[in-house]
Design a protein around this nucleic acid. Structure first.
Lengths: 193, 193
DNA sequence: TTTTTTGTTGATTGACGAGTCAATAAACTT
DNA sequence: AAGTTTATTGACTCGTCAATCAACAAAAAA
């Protein structure tokens, strides 16, 4: 039975199952057994590939961050016009891939994890740093010297919209979120003129 | 030894201890024993006054909500000028009493709790409702028909600023947060003219 | 002064869960 | 063919923790 090269496959399955289970229960109180079962294997195997539960969580977090980063990069590459880059970041942030119940719930829980696990905190800081620099770069031609401060508030706005999404019932509405963020952006830009 | 009328005293001590411990560890993984110890009593007594751990958490959440509500009401009562009421809400939201490490961390964790405990979700919905109506009322004379939508985005911004605070190291800076929120407000208002 | 109510805790129960281990099996190497 | 590496799991250990209980103490009520 043992086909070789199972490691990456198993790991990916575990990571996805982790995000799913965290999203489903809405908390980090998810047992390794639950995750392993969802991923179709024994808990012992999960422990075999990842050393500990914490490692599994961190891998899941990296995965979400990677997905998000890829989406942003993709949108950025296709961006056109002076305000194209900022819009691209916003669109990517609220794209169906990222702005979906499980993922948003996972984000929130990773935020909590960051308070007690240094590595999680580091990863979140990386995310914030990239977000800010992407926004700032995109804002530069639009807002000049005011780019950094607008990037800061836009970043907070994005996180706030994520946060509020977890309380809503029903399907997530990325378009509405983008609209709010864009309005904020336009207002800030208009003010600068 | 048994002085009578201990119940409210014990309960309050437990609630405060709970918020402190959640803030300290940054998670809901706090044992009843930890809380009880911090409050200066046995875990059995904590269970005696509150039925379960969940009840303790909910009481702590209500406490934070009550504190916040009181502060907002106070600031609102002293508000003057057309934009006084909105500014009052913002000032109260980021006042040292509310915008402090433990409290902010507790907020974040209650947000997580809301995902699995209906009563917690209800409480948070009450908070969002009050916040929105307070902001809308204050914005009405400033923004007229646009009041609701601005209240929505300002609300998201406030939550976002709270969220970001938990990642920062060092003492919380309420003034900086208020400044960002106010800038957003001004920009939105200017746009409407 | 007996009884009831309120306060209080150490000890215990019972469940659950992370992580380990021994064992089994199929590949791949030499 | 013998030995090594990779895959896989059931069973088990060990710790933790929420919740309960039995028991004791003191005040208030009867």
């Amino acid at each position: 039975m043992p086909k070789l090269g199972m490691e990456p496959i198993r790991k990916e399955a575990l990571v996805k199952a982790t995000i799913f289970e965290i999203g489903r229960t809405g908390s980090l109180d998810v047992t390794v057994s639950q995750i392993a079962k969802r991923a179709g294997m024994s808990s012992a195997l999960a422990h075999h590939y990842f050393g500990s539960k914490e490692d599994i969580f961190l891998a899941a977090m990296r995965h979400i961050l990677t997905l998000y980063g890829a989406e942003v990069r993709g949108a950025l590459a296709a961006a056109e016009g002076v305000d194209g880059r900022v819009r691209a970041v916003l669109r990517a942030s609220f794209s169906p891939g990222n702005f979906r119940r499980e993922a948003v719930s996972a984000w929130l829980n990773f935020w909590v994890l960051a308070q007690s696990v240094p590595e999680a905190k580091r990863l979140l800081a990386v995310y914030q740093g990239r977000l800010k620099s992407n926004l700032t770069a995109g804002l530069r031609p639009l807002a000049g010297a005011r780019a950094p401060e607008i990037a800061e508030s836009l970043g907070a706005m994005i996180d706030g919209l994520y946060l509020r999404e977890v309380l809503k019932s029903g399907a997530p509405d990325g378009a509405a979120a983008v609209a709010i963020a864009l309005r904020h952006l336009e207002a800030e830009l208009a003010r600068g003129v």
